[in-house]
Design a protein around this nucleic acid. Structure first.
Lengths: 139, 139
DNA sequence: ATGACAATGATACAATTAGTACAATATACA
DNA sequence: TGTATATTGTACTAATTGTATCATTGTCAT
Protein backbone atom coordinates (compact mmCIF):
# COMPACT_ATOMS: atom_id res chain seq x y z
CA UNK A 1 0.00 0.00 0.00
CA UNK A 2 1.51 3.27 -1.10
CA UNK A 3 1.43 5.72 1.73
CA UNK A 4 -1.23 8.17 0.84
CA UNK A 5 -0.84 11.65 2.13
CA UNK A 6 -3.45 12.56 4.65
CA UNK A 7 -5.18 15.70 3.44
CA UNK A 8 -7.28 17.72 5.83
CA UNK A 9 -8.94 21.05 5.34
CA UNK A 10 -9.24 23.27 8.36
CA UNK A 11 -11.53 26.19 8.71
CA UNK A 12 -10.09 28.52 11.28
CA UNK A 13 -13.21 30.63 11.42
CA UNK A 14 -15.85 27.99 11.64
CA UNK A 15 -16.03 28.15 15.38
CA UNK A 16 -15.30 24.46 15.60
CA UNK A 17 -12.11 23.75 17.52
CA UNK A 18 -9.19 22.63 15.40
CA UNK A 19 -8.89 19.34 17.22
CA UNK A 20 -12.56 18.63 16.61
CA UNK A 21 -12.16 19.27 12.93
CA UNK A 22 -9.20 16.91 12.80
CA UNK A 23 -11.15 14.24 14.64
CA UNK A 24 -14.16 14.62 12.41
CA UNK A 25 -12.26 14.55 9.17
CA UNK A 26 -10.23 11.50 10.08
CA UNK A 27 -13.37 9.69 11.10
CA UNK A 28 -15.01 10.79 7.91
CA UNK A 29 -12.14 9.54 5.78
CA UNK A 30 -12.27 6.25 7.60
CA UNK A 31 -15.97 5.87 6.93
CA UNK A 32 -15.39 6.74 3.29
CA UNK A 33 -12.60 4.18 2.98
CA UNK A 34 -10.02 6.83 2.23
CA UNK A 35 -8.31 5.61 5.35
CA UNK A 36 -8.17 1.91 6.08
CA UNK A 37 -7.37 -0.18 9.11
CA UNK A 38 -3.63 -0.47 9.52
CA UNK A 39 -2.87 2.82 7.81
CA UNK A 40 -0.30 4.92 9.54
CA UNK A 41 -1.27 8.49 10.27
CA UNK A 42 1.26 11.32 10.06
CA UNK A 43 3.22 12.00 13.22
CA UNK A 44 1.74 14.63 15.44
CA UNK A 45 4.55 16.97 14.48
CA UNK A 46 4.34 16.34 10.75
CA UNK A 47 0.61 16.87 10.60
CA UNK A 48 0.88 19.89 12.86
CA UNK A 49 3.44 21.47 10.58
CA UNK A 50 1.34 20.85 7.53
CA UNK A 51 -1.76 22.29 9.16
CA UNK A 52 0.22 25.13 10.74
CA UNK A 53 -0.97 24.33 14.21
CA UNK A 54 0.74 23.31 17.40
CA UNK A 55 1.53 19.63 17.57
CA UNK A 56 -0.30 19.40 20.88
CA UNK A 57 -3.49 20.19 19.06
CA UNK A 58 -2.94 17.25 16.76
CA UNK A 59 -1.97 15.15 19.76
CA UNK A 60 -5.25 16.09 21.38
CA UNK A 61 -7.18 14.97 18.34
CA UNK A 62 -5.24 11.73 18.24
CA UNK A 63 -5.92 11.16 21.92
CA UNK A 64 -9.64 11.54 21.40
CA UNK A 65 -9.54 9.10 18.50
CA UNK A 66 -7.42 6.76 20.56
CA UNK A 67 -9.89 6.81 23.44
CA UNK A 68 -12.64 6.09 20.95
CA UNK A 69 -10.61 3.06 19.82
CA UNK A 70 -10.40 4.40 16.33
CA UNK A 71 -6.67 4.71 16.21
CA UNK A 72 -3.80 3.30 18.21
CA UNK A 73 -1.13 5.73 19.31
CA UNK A 74 2.18 4.28 20.32
CA UNK A 75 4.82 6.40 21.95
CA UNK A 76 8.04 6.20 20.03
CA UNK A 77 6.45 4.47 17.05
CA UNK A 78 3.57 6.40 15.56
CA UNK A 79 -0.19 6.16 15.25
CA UNK A 80 -2.25 3.76 13.21
CA UNK A 81 -5.83 3.23 12.24
CA UNK A 82 -6.95 0.36 14.39
CA UNK A 83 -7.19 -3.02 12.84
CA UNK A 84 -9.81 -5.27 14.17
CA UNK A 85 -7.58 -8.28 14.44
CA UNK A 86 -9.01 -11.69 13.78
CA UNK A 87 -9.96 -12.99 17.20
CA UNK A 88 -7.53 -15.85 16.96
CA UNK A 89 -4.65 -13.45 16.43
CA UNK A 90 -5.40 -11.18 19.34
CA UNK A 91 -6.05 -14.22 21.47
CA UNK A 92 -2.68 -15.57 20.45
CA UNK A 93 -0.97 -12.34 21.44
CA UNK A 94 -2.83 -12.36 24.72
CA UNK A 95 -1.88 -15.92 25.38
CA UNK A 96 1.75 -15.29 24.54
CA UNK A 97 1.87 -12.33 26.88
CA UNK A 98 0.62 -14.36 29.79
CA UNK A 99 2.84 -17.28 28.89
CA UNK A 100 5.89 -15.09 28.86
CA UNK A 101 5.02 -13.35 32.09
CA UNK A 102 4.29 -16.58 33.87
CA UNK A 103 7.38 -18.29 32.55
CA UNK A 104 9.58 -15.51 33.83
CA UNK A 105 7.95 -15.74 37.22
CA UNK A 106 8.20 -19.51 37.49
CA UNK A 107 11.76 -19.55 36.22
CA UNK A 108 12.79 -17.04 38.83
CA UNK A 109 10.97 -18.89 41.59
CA UNK A 110 12.66 -22.16 40.72
CA UNK A 111 15.99 -20.47 40.38
CA UNK A 112 15.54 -19.25 43.92
CA UNK A 113 15.04 -22.82 44.95
CA UNK A 114 11.35 -23.07 45.64
CA UNK A 115 9.47 -26.24 44.96
CA UNK A 116 6.61 -26.69 42.60
CA UNK A 117 4.34 -27.11 45.57
CA UNK A 118 5.52 -23.95 47.30
CA UNK A 119 5.07 -21.86 44.17
CA UNK A 120 1.68 -23.32 43.55
CA UNK A 121 0.53 -22.61 47.07
CA UNK A 122 1.84 -19.08 47.05
CA UNK A 123 0.10 -18.28 43.80
CA UNK A 124 -3.12 -19.70 45.11
CA UNK A 125 -2.87 -17.53 48.20
CA UNK A 126 -1.95 -14.45 46.25
CA UNK A 127 -4.85 -14.88 43.88
CA UNK A 128 -7.23 -15.28 46.76
CA UNK A 129 -5.83 -12.16 48.38
CA UNK A 130 -6.46 -10.25 45.20
CA UNK A 131 -9.96 -11.53 44.80
CA UNK A 132 -10.81 -10.51 48.35
CA UNK A 133 -9.40 -7.07 47.77
CA UNK A 134 -11.53 -6.73 44.66
CA UNK A 135 -14.62 -7.78 46.57
CA UNK A 136 -14.04 -5.20 49.25
CA UNK A 137 -13.30 -2.62 46.64
CA UNK A 138 -16.50 -3.15 44.72
CA UNK A 139 -18.92 -3.50 47.57
CA UNK B 1 19.45 -31.79 16.94
CA UNK B 2 19.16 -30.10 13.60
CA UNK B 3 19.04 -26.37 13.88
CA UNK B 4 15.47 -25.38 13.34
CA UNK B 5 14.85 -21.98 11.96
CA UNK B 6 13.31 -19.68 14.51
CA UNK B 7 10.13 -18.27 13.07
CA UNK B 8 8.56 -15.21 14.63
CA UNK B 9 5.60 -13.20 13.51
CA UNK B 10 5.65 -9.54 14.32
CA UNK B 11 2.65 -7.29 14.29
CA UNK B 12 3.86 -3.76 13.82
CA UNK B 13 0.53 -2.22 14.72
CA UNK B 14 -0.44 -4.29 17.71
CA UNK B 15 0.67 -1.69 20.21
CA UNK B 16 3.17 -4.09 21.72
CA UNK B 17 6.77 -2.99 21.23
CA UNK B 18 8.77 -5.14 18.83
CA UNK B 19 11.20 -6.20 21.52
CA UNK B 20 8.31 -7.32 23.72
CA UNK B 21 6.85 -9.39 20.93
CA UNK B 22 10.20 -11.08 20.38
CA UNK B 23 10.55 -11.80 24.08
CA UNK B 24 7.03 -13.17 24.35
CA UNK B 25 7.23 -15.40 21.34
CA UNK B 26 10.56 -16.91 22.26
CA UNK B 27 9.29 -17.70 25.73
CA UNK B 28 6.10 -19.07 24.29
CA UNK B 29 8.01 -21.36 21.96
CA UNK B 30 10.08 -22.52 24.89
CA UNK B 31 7.04 -23.43 26.92
CA UNK B 32 5.55 -25.17 23.93
CA UNK B 33 8.73 -27.17 23.41
CA UNK B 34 9.41 -25.65 20.02
CA UNK B 35 12.61 -24.40 21.56
CA UNK B 36 14.54 -26.53 24.00
CA UNK B 37 17.29 -25.90 26.52
CA UNK B 38 20.60 -25.72 24.74
CA UNK B 39 19.16 -24.54 21.43
CA UNK B 40 21.05 -21.76 19.79
CA UNK B 41 19.08 -18.70 18.80
CA UNK B 42 19.84 -16.71 15.67
CA UNK B 43 22.44 -13.99 16.04
CA UNK B 44 21.07 -10.58 16.78
CA UNK B 45 21.98 -9.45 13.29
CA UNK B 46 20.52 -12.46 11.52
CA UNK B 47 17.22 -12.29 13.32
CA UNK B 48 17.10 -8.54 12.87
CA UNK B 49 17.58 -8.87 9.15
CA UNK B 50 14.88 -11.47 8.87
CA UNK B 51 12.42 -9.41 10.88
CA UNK B 52 13.46 -6.19 9.15
CA UNK B 53 14.27 -4.42 12.37
CA UNK B 54 17.41 -2.90 13.80
CA UNK B 55 19.68 -5.44 15.45
CA UNK B 56 19.63 -3.44 18.64
CA UNK B 57 15.95 -4.18 18.94
CA UNK B 58 16.72 -7.88 18.90
CA UNK B 59 19.62 -7.31 21.27
CA UNK B 60 17.23 -5.62 23.65
CA UNK B 61 14.89 -8.59 23.57
CA UNK B 62 17.80 -10.95 24.16
CA UNK B 63 18.99 -8.84 27.05
CA UNK B 64 15.58 -9.04 28.72
CA UNK B 65 15.53 -12.80 28.30
CA UNK B 66 19.08 -12.98 29.56
CA UNK B 67 18.22 -11.01 32.67
CA UNK B 68 15.30 -13.35 33.27
CA UNK B 69 17.76 -16.24 32.98
CA UNK B 70 15.85 -17.70 30.09
CA UNK B 71 18.71 -17.49 27.65
CA UNK B 72 22.44 -17.04 27.90
CA UNK B 73 24.03 -14.48 25.65
CA UNK B 74 27.75 -14.71 25.15
CA UNK B 75 29.64 -12.04 23.35
CA UNK B 76 31.46 -13.49 20.38
CA UNK B 77 29.71 -16.85 20.64
CA UNK B 78 26.00 -16.46 20.32
CA UNK B 79 22.92 -16.94 22.43
CA UNK B 80 21.47 -20.12 23.75
CA UNK B 81 18.39 -21.27 25.57
CA UNK B 82 19.63 -21.78 29.08
CA UNK B 83 20.11 -25.26 30.45
CA UNK B 84 18.15 -26.07 33.55
CA UNK B 85 20.05 -24.29 36.29
CA UNK B 86 21.55 -26.50 38.94
CA UNK B 87 19.46 -26.29 42.09
CA UNK B 88 22.36 -25.35 44.33
CA UNK B 89 21.29 -21.76 44.37
CA UNK B 90 18.40 -23.12 46.37
CA UNK B 91 18.38 -23.42 50.11
CA UNK B 92 19.15 -19.76 50.51
CA UNK B 93 15.97 -18.02 51.04
CA UNK B 94 12.57 -17.92 52.43
CA UNK B 95 9.04 -16.89 51.97
CA UNK B 96 9.40 -13.15 51.91
CA UNK B 97 11.10 -13.26 48.56
CA UNK B 98 8.64 -15.71 47.11
CA UNK B 99 5.76 -13.65 48.43
CA UNK B 100 7.10 -10.49 46.91
CA UNK B 101 7.89 -12.22 43.64
CA UNK B 102 4.45 -13.78 43.45
CA UNK B 103 2.63 -10.60 44.24
CA UNK B 104 4.51 -8.70 41.60
CA UNK B 105 3.58 -11.39 39.13
CA UNK B 106 -0.08 -11.58 40.10
CA UNK B 107 -0.46 -7.82 40.18
CA UNK B 108 1.02 -7.49 36.72
CA UNK B 109 -1.13 -10.28 35.33
CA UNK B 110 -4.29 -8.63 36.62
CA UNK B 111 -3.16 -5.28 35.37
CA UNK B 112 -2.93 -6.81 31.92
CA UNK B 113 -6.51 -7.94 32.30
CA UNK B 114 -6.12 -11.64 32.86
CA UNK B 115 -8.59 -13.46 35.01
CA UNK B 116 -7.87 -15.41 38.14
CA UNK B 117 -8.67 -18.57 36.26
CA UNK B 118 -6.38 -17.78 33.37
CA UNK B 119 -3.48 -17.00 35.67
CA UNK B 120 -4.09 -20.12 37.67
CA UNK B 121 -4.17 -22.28 34.58
CA UNK B 122 -1.07 -20.77 33.11
CA UNK B 123 0.89 -21.24 36.31
CA UNK B 124 -0.16 -24.84 36.42
CA UNK B 125 1.05 -25.35 32.89
CA UNK B 126 4.29 -23.56 33.47
CA UNK B 127 5.03 -25.58 36.57
CA UNK B 128 4.44 -28.73 34.59
CA UNK B 129 6.88 -27.52 31.99
CA UNK B 130 9.51 -27.18 34.65
CA UNK B 131 8.83 -30.52 36.19
CA UNK B 132 9.18 -32.19 32.81
CA UNK B 133 12.41 -30.38 32.20
CA UNK B 134 13.75 -31.50 35.55
CA UNK B 135 12.77 -35.09 34.87
CA UNK B 136 14.61 -35.09 31.60
CA UNK B 137 17.55 -33.47 33.27
CA UNK B 138 17.85 -36.07 35.99
CA UNK B 139 17.28 -39.11 33.81
C1' DA C 1 -14.45 45.46 32.87
C1' DT C 2 -13.80 40.99 34.73
C1' DG C 3 -13.90 36.22 35.88
C1' DA C 4 -14.41 31.62 34.11
C1' DC C 5 -13.65 28.39 30.89
C1' DA C 6 -12.19 26.35 26.57
C1' DA C 7 -8.69 26.21 23.02
C1' DT C 8 -4.14 26.44 21.78
C1' DG C 9 0.88 26.92 22.49
C1' DA C 10 5.52 26.13 24.89
C1' DT C 11 8.46 23.21 27.17
C1' DA C 12 10.21 19.29 29.21
C1' DC C 13 9.83 14.38 29.33
C1' DA C 14 9.51 9.27 28.26
C1' DA C 15 9.43 5.20 25.15
C1' DT C 16 11.00 2.99 21.09
C1' DT C 17 14.09 2.21 17.59
C1' DA C 18 18.34 3.21 14.91
C1' DG C 19 23.48 4.40 14.29
C1' DT C 20 28.23 3.82 15.44
C1' DA C 21 32.07 2.22 17.63
C1' DC C 22 33.92 -1.37 20.39
C1' DA C 23 35.16 -5.83 22.93
C1' DA C 24 35.15 -10.81 23.26
C1' DT C 25 35.34 -14.98 20.95
C1' DA C 26 35.91 -18.09 17.14
C1' DT C 27 38.02 -19.33 12.81
C1' DA C 28 41.25 -19.57 9.00
C1' DC C 29 45.68 -20.06 7.61
C1' DA C 30 50.58 -19.47 7.42
C1' DT D 1 51.09 -22.38 17.35
C1' DG D 2 50.58 -17.61 16.41
C1' DT D 3 48.22 -14.03 14.28
C1' DA D 4 45.00 -11.77 11.23
C1' DT D 5 40.22 -11.62 10.21
C1' DA D 6 35.44 -12.47 10.75
C1' DT D 7 31.64 -13.03 13.78
C1' DT D 8 29.07 -12.02 17.72
C1' DG D 9 27.14 -9.42 21.50
C1' DT D 10 27.64 -4.66 24.17
C1' DA D 11 27.63 0.20 25.24
C1' DC D 12 26.64 4.54 24.32
C1' DT D 13 24.35 7.89 21.81
C1' DA D 14 21.08 10.00 18.65
C1' DA D 15 16.70 10.45 16.32
C1' DT D 16 11.86 9.99 16.21
C1' DT D 17 7.78 9.41 18.31
C1' DG D 18 3.84 10.39 21.64
C1' DT D 19 2.79 12.35 26.70
C1' DA D 20 2.24 15.46 30.57
C1' DT D 21 2.02 19.82 32.51
C1' DC D 22 1.52 24.36 32.70
C1' DA D 23 1.14 29.03 30.44
C1' DT D 24 -1.18 32.00 27.23
C1' DT D 25 -4.98 33.53 24.56
C1' DG D 26 -9.59 34.39 23.33
C1' DT D 27 -14.57 34.37 24.09
C1' DC D 28 -18.57 35.08 26.57
C1' DA D 29 -21.72 35.66 30.48
C1' DT D 30 -22.24 38.62 34.16
Amino acid sequence: MADKKLTLHLDFHSGLPIYTQIVNQIQSQLVNKILKPGDQLPTVRALAQELRVNFNTVARAYRILDEARIISTQQGRGTYIIEIPPPEISEKLRYESLTALTQRFVTEAFRLGFSEREVSQMVKGSLKFWKDAQDIDSK
